[in-house]
């Protein structure tokens, strides 16, 4: 152990500069996220105040004759002193020396609005309680969980079947159908969206139902099919041949041989879909937005954010929406962060 330690430290020192660089980059990259977290805890009075510190803070309070007043840094006789602003006025104000309150109020000539306050650290959960009072979070969460569950089941089952079909069977037209699959990824959404909107709303009267949001998922998703297919391709066929000799049909081979080898990509695809459903707002704004019993959390919060224009409440609501995906992301990181393989070859061990 004694012999090992210096070696380890040496190795650590060798990789330290590189890691420091990556951490620095990460801090820069995530700084808007830190900004969000800090802002979510800020009292509203701090928001427009450009002199306020970066952390959640408020101007120091001082109690005088039973009332709370704020303390400012005031230039007096050539030096800057913290003073209590008791009677603010346009051109002159009345101040109190917090160290010698017995001296009484002092008249001060100058604009108090140009003064910089004396700040103290002060954070608040108020922004979150405002949110929970004004939005039906439980109901919205239930709606989102329902959409996620049904959508995941549909899109995973269909995409896995289709991907298996593309990876193991000779299809009529050779690779043509696979090229068509890729082409569907590239179709701009707007060109198919207009007729669908008309059919769902005017012909089928599906506004206020979950069908327009969920139905298409049961027919597979081209991106997911592509990712799954590339991964299935990288699994050696020999394993399946062995199973086939034992009399296993294609479905059985898919479930007993291929899927157990493909957990990382299946988890990745289900996570991609989970994050998508959690944040989805386009379809839900069109088809579910009118009904509070169907409204998912993504659209509910977004709607709220566009109405309320107060930064700290907005950032608090972002945190609330993010909590569940964040937990999922960190729980699944072992599988998710293996990297997505798109080339479909047998990868080196």
């Amino acid at each position: 152990m004694n012999k090992l330690l210096p070696v380890q430290i040496k190795r650590l020192l060798k990789v330290l500069p590189f890691n420091l660089f990556v951490w620095f980059l990460l801090m820069l990259y995530l700084s808007p996220v830190f900004f969000m977290m800090v802002t979510a805890m800020m009292p509203t009075a701090q928001l427009g105040d450009k002199n306020a510190p970066l952390y959640p803070a408020r101007i120091k309070q001082y109690e005088y004759e039973g009332k709370e007043y704020q303390i400012y840094n005031v230039p007096l006789d050539g030096e800057t002193k913290p003073m209590v602003l008791v009677v603010p006025g346009r051109e002159s104000s009345q101040l109190l020396d917090p160290e010698h309150p017995e001296n009484g109020l002092i008249e001060w000539q100058g604009r108090w609005r140009d003064l910089v306050g004396v700040y103290e650290f002060h954070f608040t959960w108020e922004n979150f309680t405002v949110l929970f009072r004004s939005l039906p979070f439980l109901q919205m969460l239930r709606n989102t969980f329902f959409l996620t569950l049904v959508g995941e089941l549909g899109v995973l089952a269909s995409s896995i079947l289709v991907a298996y079909g593309f990876s193991r069977f000779r299809l009529p037209g050779g690779n043509l159908l696979f090229y068509v699959l890729i082409a569907t990824i590239l179709i701009p959404d707007k060109v198919t969206f207009i007729p669908k909107f008309f059919i769902y709303v005017s012909l089928l009267h599906w506004r206020g139902t979950v069908y327009p949001v969920l139905l298409h998922l049961f027919f597979g998703n081209a991106v997911y099919i592509f990712l799954l297919r590339q991964n299935f391709k990288s699994i050696p066929v020999e394993l399946e041949e062995a199973a086939m000799l034992d009399g296993a049909g294609p479905l059985r081979r898919l479930f007993m041989v291929v899927l157990p080898q493909s957990w990382p990509v299946v988890i990745t695809v289900s996570l991609l879909h989970f994050f998508y459903t959690w944040n989805e707002t386009r379809l839900s704004s069109l088809y579910l937005g009118t009904d509070p019993n169907l409204m998912p959390i993504s659209f509910g919060v977004q709607n709220y954010q566009s109405l309320i224009r107060i930064d700290n409440v907005i950032e608090a609501s972002t945190i609330v929406v993010l909590i569940v995906p964040l937990i999922v992301l960190f729980l699944a990181q072992k599988y998710f962060m293996q990297g997505l393989v798109i080339t479909g070859t047998e990868t080196a061990k």
Binding site: K14, V15, F18, N19, V22, L26, Y29, L30, P32, V33, F35, M36, T39, F275, W278, N279, T281, S298, V301, Q302, Q305, S306, D311, I314, E315, S317, T318, V321, L322, P325, L326, L329, F330, Q333, K334, F336, M337
Partner: peptide, 29 residues
């Protein structure tokens, strides 16, 4: 040379799961 590979990758991935509208407001601020 990277230490804590999975965690670092996850942290770099993190902004990609923030809802687009919230992210836009966050950037504005």
């Amino acid at each position: 040379r990277l230490l804590m590979k999975n965690t670092m990758r996850t942290l770099f991935f993190l902004p990609s799961i923030i809802p687009a509208f919230s992210a836009a407001l966050m950037w504005q601020g």
